[in-house]
Design a protein around this nucleic acid. Structure first.
Length: 612
DNA sequence: GAGTTTGAAACT
DNA sequence: CAGTTTCAAACTC
């Protein structure tokens, strides 16, 4: 209710008729304060002019409308179905013009969401899971929805279906609305521009840096005093960004490394990993807006808790914390460049889009660029050696095949017998093969015999070959050929050179992938160790391991499935949900490695591709 | 759901 | 620019 004012003015301040209050009380249509009225005409012009040059220091560096992707969708109010369709294109257009605000006063306020609150909420509502959702409605009572207090207005959209009173933020009151926009722009040319500085590079960078911290920076900064910047009162917090040097907050706890902040995210949420992963996924996909993180598990703390440091703005702790964040950002990159960053702060440099959460890969410290290079080098070497070895073996096999062809007739019956017997022991053989190049040792001529349809004693069709993308298939044929079921002299003669090459590649690939798998397994183990460590640290109430604690050394199933088309999949399914996501690209053309985490809660899906 | 708290916006 | 008031959302009960 209108405790404070209602239709009454503050008793003591007679002359201080707030324009909006007066207007509200009297219901005078869109009348502006004297100042605004006086300049409305010229102000407009001036405002327009200003718009073209209103670049703020923080935003100048973004000629490419960084936030555009995020905001564009916001401009189209989902719930506006019944409303003027003609409006939306315009808004969209204006959105495109974002940096230079609408040149004409009549131009709808099209502007971008200004209030971080509005922005973040919108984001939440619209992009949470990639599916637009109904936007929250405002509840304005005294602003006629023509001031930035109103989320809708601040977002540059018409009110529609809101719970507001005496709303003028609609088509019917376009004139008043336009005036309000002008007035608002006059006061602050950036009023409708995003408050959170975003990446000048766009969302793609969000992906690229998903493994590290993703930062945004409030252009003006917050001025919180009592919330510790850990409640939604704080614009930074609401936008899920850390406070920056732009902020003038007191007792800020919204900085990287803040215990209170961590408690909020990890605290009583046993399943905090889910949130981490959500954030990671959000960052990766870039699908979530500034608050797409949803509602972080807010620990409803008591007031007393918020006064821990008692220090004022930007206390040393704060600065240290923020600096830590910077360090972490740069961690995955040669760290030499960061330590000397004067006043390095979150959001400095290439501030990324309104991201809400910062996630850092558990492997960030483990995997270094040079490691990847080395790995690729090793794999390349293996590949080369494998090729060499295969060539030799093939050569030997062909020789042997010639020799055997003479005696094959004699032994065919015997071999058949033998093969049936061996079938019983084939499993162990298969297992051996799956673990490495063992198969080739046990069946030197595998590459040759593989290409034959053993059961029918004739060459396999290309389609059949293509189907042989399963390791076990290869194992089977390998084993079968080993048993001499095939008349190599006949089969080999029918093989095309291309098929041979394909098989050779398969073997080669299998060797490389096996090595790569081993490497990944080690990597996973390291990640698990780290995760376990962090999991323990994340427990607010348990700083040390007790006898009841369980340190999860999880097991996972890993399978490797080489295929003939040059693509192999290594699927790792950890029991936990550690968000491992690392993109690996090799300097070598023939080893293009991808490690991704496509599923939300499940696990890691490691994919290895080789461009043949 | 009502009342309180909070901080941005608006204003002086 | 600083101080105050207004406002609506966030929060608490």
């Amino acid at each position: 209710m209108e405790q404070r004012e209602g239709g009454e003015f503050p008793p003591k301040i007679s002359a201080q008729l707030d324009a909006s209050t007066a207007e509200t009380a009297t219901d005078i249509p869109a009348r502006k304060p004297a100042r605004q009225l006086d300049f409305s005409g010229g102000a407009l012009t001036s405002a327009s002019v200003v718009m073209t040059e209103h670049h703020q220091p923080q935003q100048i560096s973004k000629p490419s409308h960084p936030s555009q992707p995020l905001q564009q969708p916001q401009l189209v109010k989902p719930r506006q179905l019944p409303k003027p369709p003609q409006l939306q294109p315009e808004m969209l257009f204006i959105a495109m013009q974002q940096p230079p605000p609408p040149p004409h006063p009549s131009a709808r306020p099209v502007v971008k969401p200004e209030s971080p609150r509005a922005r973040s909420r919108q984001n939440v509502n619209e992009v949470k899971d990639g599916t637009p959702k109904k936007q929250k409605q405002c509840n304005c009572k005294h602003s006629r929805c023509l001031k930035l207090y109103c989320e809708c207005f601040a977002s540059g959209i018409y009110c529609d279906g809101c719970n507001c009173v005496n709303c003028h933020n609609n088509v019917e009151n376009e004139a008043a609305r336009s005036e309000a926009v002008e007035a608002t722009l006059e006061r602050n040319p950036n009023a409708f521009r995003p408050k959170i500085a975003s990446s000048p590079h766009g969302t793609q960078d969000i992906r690229e840096e998903a493994g590290d911290l993703i930062l945004g920076k409030h252009n003006k900064g917050c001025h919180c005093k009592k919330s510790g910047c850990l409640k939604k009162y704080c614009e930074c917090f609401q936008a899920n960004i850390l406070c920056s040097d732009n902020c003038k907050c007191m007792d800020c706890k919204n900085y990287e490394g803040s215990e209170e902040r961590q408690a909020l995210f990890h605290g009583d949420h046993a399943n905090n990993m889910v949130y981490i992963q959500q954030a990671a996924n959000a960052a990766i996909t870039g699908a979530i807006g500034s608050s797409g993180y949803g509602s972080p598990p807010l620990n409803k703390k008591r007031k007393g808790q918020e006064l821990f440091y008692g220090s004022t703005v930007k206390d040393p702790v704060h600065r240290v914390g923020q600096f830590q964040q910077v360090n972490q950002i740069k961690d995955s990159v040669p760290s030499s460049s960061l330590s000397s960053l004067p006043g390095a702060r979150p959001g400095n440099g290439s501030a990324l889009g309104p991201s809400k959460f910062t996630y850092r890969s558990l492997l960030a410290d483990i995997i270094q660029p040079q490691d990847l290079k080395e790995l690729c080098s090793v794999l390349a070497v293996y590949s080369g050696e494998a090729a060499k070895m295969l060539a030799e073996e093939r050569h030997t096999a062909e020789k042997r095949a010639e020799d055997c062809s003479e005696s094959s007739l004699h032994s065919s019956t015997q071999d058949t017998h033998q093969s049936q017997k061996d079938h019983g022991t084939m499993k162990p053989l298969t297992d051996d093969v799956s673990s490495g190049n063992q198969a080739m040792k046990t069946s030197p001529d595998a590459s040759v015999s593989d290409e034959a349809d053993v059961s029918k004693g004739r060459p396999m069709s290309p389609s059949t070959l293509a189907l042989m993308c399963d390791e076990q298939d290869m194992m089977f044929t390998t084993a079968a050929s080993l048993n001499g079921l095939v008349d190599h002299s006949i089969v080999s003669s029918q093989l095309s050179q291309g098929q041979r090459l394909t098989e050779a590649y398969s073997e080669q690939e299998r060797i490389v992938l096996t090595k790569f798998r081993d490497c990944l397994n080690r990597l996973i183990t390291l990640g698990e160790i780290k995760e376990t460590k962090y999991s323990l640290l994340a427990r607010p109430d348990e700083t040390e391991v007790t006898s009841n604690d369980t340190i999860n050394v999880r097991t996972e199933s890993r399978t490797i499935q080489p295929t003939n088309n040059g693509v192999a999949k290594i699927t790792v399914m950890p029991l936990s949900t550690s968000p491992m996501t690392t993109a690996v690209s090799s300097p070598y053309n023939d080893t293009n490695l991808k490690i991704s985490s496509p599923s939300e809660n499940v696990g890691v899906n490691l994919q290895t591709e080789r461009e043949v």
